[in-house]
Design a protein around this nucleic acid. Structure first.
Length: 589
DNA sequence: GAGTTTGAAACT
DNA sequence: CAGTTTCAAACTC
């Protein structure tokens, strides 16, 4: 394992950039410092390996940059214990310095979850100044501590990086000039086993960009591990994991178990911002997701950014280990789908969606059909709607009671009063609808706005987080206490007799019950519609899934593509439809 | 700083 | 190719 200094999450080595053609990076470029140049060797060159190297393109001392010489001189000075002073590097073993090195594609300020600097021997310190990353963070060349490998196996980070040991704490080191023959042999053997052994492990994404999430401050790096990790116990959230260590998300290349190193992972985010409030929010999110399985991650303020996602998830995969986890992965998938250029995608519908590049055989995941349907704004809206319904119901019922009283007082006009009551109720129903329509109308506007904002630059947590059911319930209760007294004209009518008070109390109780009934009825309707949305989605994806198997080689084929929509888009949202239905007068009972 | 855990690399 | 061993870094105490 290599450790980048500063505890920052700099990748192990420079990312292979687009500027570096694959053919040129068959050998290591990842740690340029004192790095041997394998350029000139192709994949098939392992037999001739010898570290041939820079001499091909960068011959000899005469062209050795002064800073290289300087470093070489320093190497002599700081050579590890039990190593005799090195002679100047042989021509065949040219070095690169950090200055020459391509900057890591990932220089993200990984929030320090670990102490910054690996303890190093005093002798090693002078080298620190040699390597700087562009952000000013000292880039210390790591020192290995190999004891049994002679630093001639890939176990040795120095060797794996293609650099001589320098200032390391290794024992019986052969990764040096003095043991160049042995080293060459080791390199040959290594390349023989794996011609790509010295290739950088981390490859930039085709998009070559990275994204910095304002929300978390974490850099979301669009790169991936060429081989992928195979972590089993670390959740890919420790530096044991090469992906995590390189500050990249696990990819379809990985074969890790219980991976939490994917975009949208609560564990990962918690690790990054460690903020208590956020943690609580994530706990809430996880809990909600576990309970409902229906709320898109975007609903919790996770901005839709370009993301790599963990493995491909086949929608109807059968190997679900952790539903919540998998849901999150799918949420990530949605976001990826939404943000990636369409031309790069085969555009797998809905929950199948994912970057074509991420399609692989290993990750089967289930995602709720309802995922993404409900957005946080929708929940807020729903809450507001229910509150308003509650209030309006109270008013309406109070009116009814009042009318009934009047009717009772005028017993001789019983039949007529009945008619009045009906009229009153009809009128109240109409009035009750009106503010709802207004409210929902504005709500929808707000939703649209929020969606746009979320889509463009990330979610606004302050307004993006949905309320938990308990919060919603509390809110409704609170609102009820506000609305109901005001909505009970009897209380204000001046009738103060005991009989009247008792009657009012009974009325109040009945009003509460009626309020509750109406609100719950509306909520039930809402849930029913949500279920319907899920069923529709299921039907659609089922058919598309079948289509997909025939069209996978035609990424832009029409049928699939036109049906793919971001969950935020109205047609697949379902919530919008649901909200409109709330406005239908007939639904008030 | 010692011991343990972890996962890549090496080996069978 | 899968399972096991070796190794060194990461991590814990």
């Amino acid at each position: 394992m290599e450790e980048t200094e500063g505890g920052d999450f700099l990748p192990k080595g420079p990312q292979q950039s687009e500027a570096t053609p694959p053919a040129a990076v068959d050998f290591p470029v990842r740690n340029p410092a004192r790095q041997l140049d394998f350029t000139g060797l192709g994949d098939g060159a392992s037999s001739s390996v010898g570290l041939a190297l820079l001499e091909v393109s960068q011959p000899q001392q005469s062209q050795t940059p002064s800073h290289l010489i300087q470093q070489q001189q320093q190497q002599q000075l700081v050579k590890p214990k039990n190593q005799p002073p090195k002679p100047p590097p042989l021509p065949q073993m040219p070095f690169l310095t950090m200055q020459q090195a391509p900057q890591p594609a990932v220089s993200s300020p990984h929030p320090s979850v670990r102490p910054a600097v690996k303890p190093e021997s005093p002798r090693a310190r002078p080298r620190q100044n040699l390597a700087e990353v562009n952000d000013g963070t000292p880039k210390k060349q790591k020192q290995c501590n190999c004891k049994h490998s002679r630093c001639l196996k890939l176990y040795c980070e120095c060797f794996a990086s293609g650099v001589y040991c320098d200032g390391c704490n290794c024992v019986n080191c052969h990764n040096n000039i003095e043991n160049d023959d042995a080293r060459r042999e080791a390199v040959e053997a290594t390349l023989e086993r794996n011609p790509q052994a010295f290739r950088p492990k981390i490859a930039s994404s085709p998009h070559g960009a990275r994204d910095f999430r304002e929300e978390t401050g974490e850099g979301v790096v669009l790169a991936k591990h060429n081989k992928g990790c195979h972590c089993k116990k670390s959740g890919c959230l420790k530096k044991y994991c090469e992906c995590f260590q390189a500050n990249i998300l696990c990819s379809e290349n990985c074969k890790c178990l219980d991976c939490k190193n994917y975009e949208g992972s609560e564990e990962r985010q918690a690790l990054f911002h460690g903020d208590h409030a956020h943690n609580m929010a994530y706990i809430q999110q996880a809990a909600n997701a576990a309970i409902t399985g229906a709320i898109g991650s975007s609903g919790y303020g996770s901005p839709p950014v370009n993301k790599k996602r963990k493995g491909q998830e086949l929608f109807f995969g059968s190997t679900v280990k952790d539903p919540v986890h998998k849901i999150r992965q799918f949420q990530q998938a949605d976001q990826v789908k939404a943000s990636l250029p369409s031309s790069s995608l085969p555009l797998i519908p809905g929950a199948f969606a994912g970057n074509a590049l991420t399609l692989g055989p290993s990750k089967f995941t289930y995602r709720s059909l309802l995922a993404g349907i409900i957005q946080p704004e929708d929940l807020k809206e729903l809450c507001s709607v229910l509150v308003v319904y509650s209030g309006e119901a109270a008013k309406m019922l109070a009116e009814e009671r009042k009318a009934a009283e009047i009717q009772a007082e005028n017993s001789s006009e019983t039949l007529a009063a009945s008619s009045v009551q009906d009229q009153c109720q009809s009128r109240k129903n109409a009035e009750a609808e009106k503010p709802l329509i207004d409210d929902l109308s504005s709500g929808n506007q707000a939703e649209t706005k929020n969606s746009e904002e979320s889509t463009s630059n990330g979610a606004d947590e302050s307004k993006g987080r949905p309320m938990s059911p308990s919060t919603l319930a509390l809110m409704c209760d609170e609102q009820a206490t506000i609305f109901t007294p005001a909505a009970s004209p009897n209380e204000l009518s001046g009738q103060s007799s005991v009989t009247t008070q008792l009657l009012n109390r009974q009325d109040l109780s009945g009003t509460y019950a009626e309020q509750e009934r109406i609100v719950l009825t509306k909520f039930r309707d809402c849930l029913n519609r949500l279920i319907t949305s899920g069923e529709i989605k299921e039907t659609k994806y089922s058919s598309l899934a079948q289509t997909e198997s025939y069209q996978q080689n035609e990424p832009t084929s029409n049928g699939v593509r036109t049906d793919i929509r971001s969950p935020r888009q109205p047609i697949s949202n379902g919530v919008e439809k649901l909200v409109f239905n709330f406005n239908q007068p007939g639904h008030i009972q």
